[in-house]
Design a binder for these strands. Structure first.
Lengths: 229, 229
DNA sequence: CGGCTGATTGAGCTATGTCAAGGGCAGTGG
DNA sequence: CCACTGCCCTTGACATAGCTCAATCAGCCG
């Protein structure tokens, strides 16, 4: 299989990432030290509890971030996409990874080794600040998610997740997540997720082609997502 | 009511806070610019969605951080105590507060105005780094909480929360949280929380005196907290 | 002695999880 | 090109944790 290592200079993923703060020279340096890798669907990029080795930047594809709970179930905390950075929290806090990262499509990812990452935050204060803001945003989102899971019924959470996924799903507008992954993303089980999707289909809020889902009535779903008991 | 504004120099709360990174001179400056305030139990320190005005540092007492969900229920995300800093996320991300802060005991809090906060992170890189690590830690905790709420049964979550609260409850070892607040902290309702506490009492895992709870068998509770289905 | 706030307890009800049994599509190997 | 195998997806039947509503009780304060 032919895989051309992406060049940071003209990397589209870089543009909507924190690396947009980098100067041309820095970008060239990054390009020189980074290593690129292709992960097949289902392959692990890194494991929960492992020691971090660097900063990952997703080039193409999609990755699920998940933790294993003691009852053996997998909880997906987020779906990461091109331009998203992975692993910085563990690097900064000097801890092990708090979640695993698994490719859910064939995915290309670049890795910036630890030393270069730290050099970057030392030398580029804009990048540093950006990272800090990213952390805050991430925290805000998680905080919101806690509220959701605690009080929003599954139906609403699924509606919400579908909206988010559709927004993130580039051109196509198709959501290709597995029902199981979708369930795990909103904190429920496969069967419940399926039933609710079926309801939405019957109400013509979305259509299902093979496994893929396409939203038809975003407004309606949005409304359901905000509707409580 | 007599309230002596605390002095940063010999503030016990400061010692287990990020401000421990400050030099003597910085501490003196902080002391000069800060304003101290006493909040009665039940009083709001700041409101969700309001614009941040500075960094809060809890001196004595306890504060609940909570969000209102559309169905009118309050979700408590965390209980903050002396030494804890509040509001930095909104300052850094330049957003409004994502939660409200309410005193659950009579509480003394100092406020460092926005400009001085930014001056601090500009000039003290240790403080800056510490703040970053704090953010990471906070994010980790929330991530864990998401997993908990999604998959851990209420019984386990209550056990866990009790352990945490007991740990944080200074000397006394008494947990004084309202049943309602406890419920909201673990994402359930008052009645369910009460029933589970009663069970624990019957099993002699804790004792209840008036409203106050004291843990008797931490090991057991710990075990329950990790026990799934 | 009221009146209040919070704690309890009981009795249903229901959303959601669990278990079980197919069904369809896609990729593989003969 | 067909049959086989292995995912997923789907649906039904059933069980139950946890929510709601409602009534009562226990401190506490003026």
């Amino acid at each position: 299989m032919k895989f051309v290592s992406p060049n940071c200079k003209n990397c589209r993923a870089r543009e909507n990432s924190l690396f947009s703060f980098c100067q041309v020279r820095e970008t060239e340096q990054l390009n020189a030290v980074k290593t690129a890798n292709l992960y097949k669907k289902g392959q692990y990029i890194f494991y929960e509890n492992a020691a971090p080795i660097g900063l990952f930047c997703i080039n193409t594809g999609a990755v699920k971030l998940c933790k294993l709970s003691s009852n053996g179930k997998e909880q997906i905390t987020r779906i990461a996409r091109p331009g998203d950075l992975l692993g910085y929290r563990s690097l900064i806090a000097k801890t092990t990874y708090t979640y695993s990262a698994v490719a859910i499509e064939d995915t290309a990812i670049c890795l910036i080794p630890k030393p270069e990452f730290f050099a970057l935050i030392r030398n580029n204060s804009q990048f540093y600040e950006g990272l800090m803001q990213l952390l805050c945003k991430e925290a805000d989102e998680m905080e919101a998610k806690i509220g959701d899971i605690a009080y929003k019924p599954v139906r609403g959470r699924i509606a919400e997740a579908l909206m988010l996924l559709a927004g993130a799903a580039k051109e196509s507008g198709y959501i290709t997540l597995t029902r199981e992954d979708l369930a795990s993303l909103v904190g429920t089980v496969k069967e419940t997720a399926i039933r609710i999707i079926s309801e939405f289909r019957e109400e013509n809020l979305l259509e299902v082609d093979k496994r893929r889902i396409r939203i038809l009535r975003p407004e309606k779903l949005m409304q359901i997502s905000n509707l409580y008991d």
